[in-house]
Design a protein around this nucleic acid. Sequence first.
DNA 1: GAGTCAATAT
DNA 2: GATATTGACT
Length: 325
Amino acid sequence: MREDDSDWFARWEEELPSPEELMPLSQSLISPDLALAFDIRSPVHGNGNSGQPHHHHQSTPPTPSQLQLPSSQANSSAEFAADSADLGSGAAGDEPARTLKRPRLVWTPQLHKRFVDAVAHLGIKNAVPKTIMQLMSVDGLTRENVASHLQKYRLYLKRMQGLSSGGGAGSDPATDRLFASSPVPAHFLHPNRVPSSDHFMPSFVPIATLQQQQQMAAAAAAAAAAAANPHLQPPQFHHRQIAAAHFGSPTNGQFNSPTSNGQFNSPTTTNGKFDPSFLARQTQPLHRMSTPSLHSPVGNYSEDLESANANGGRTVLTLFPTRDD
DNA sequence: GAGTCAATAT
DNA sequence: GATATTGACT
């Protein structure tokens, strides 16, 4: 019934992090003025958002120092790393890097949530890898990443359906944990009748880097939302944009266990300075947007690259807002 | 080319 | 074990 739907809708915002919990991710990208304008607080500044993890771990063995983590204060504020150019087009850089291998993507609950949101907003039928990828607008994320994840997620949904309809389907504790970290919108499980509000527009507000972008983004998003859901009033935009900040999921809060993935944020190289060059790429994600009607993208996820250990130099890419203070 | 699915590789 | 990759098929 529509209760499910509205209920889900209602809970949407509750799950979002409170402004206080929002990570400084945006702060680093937004000028103080802009931050003020949008009432974004900056809980911390001191933490070096040093950004310059050179991720040339093609065959470069990780330095031990990078892998070591103080465990108490290492990972909190990782920062933006890889240029989308490096990760994305692969071309571009200084080196041929033609055979550059992307680091393995780790699907954090936050990232997964964004994924779920994107799927929810698109509606199941429109949720295809490419579109989802665009909506998520996480740079470095590929269609293949999404496709693979989507494939698994569908299996998960199938299992959920089976469970709720009586059958005693099994459960995969492993994968379920990730997927369970984000609530599954009601209509995901009921492909039958799509509510008139096929999709709506939660606070999927992008954090733009520039004022203009911010404003245009909001306007565009609002317009898109309005166009998509003439019946629904787009939720008011405010500063809780990135729905990811918390490290505890609604249902269980224990994922960043290093044991499972061994990926921590490294001290981020030796550079303790703020590298303005990453600002330049803020606008880059826009380039891969071919459909203007989609939400405006933003590289608001920090990408944490880490070369892994003894397993043969496996590399891991973590795209998620890091801020666990 | 893009998508889905299953199987297989890393 | 989680994710990527590949291949067959639509």
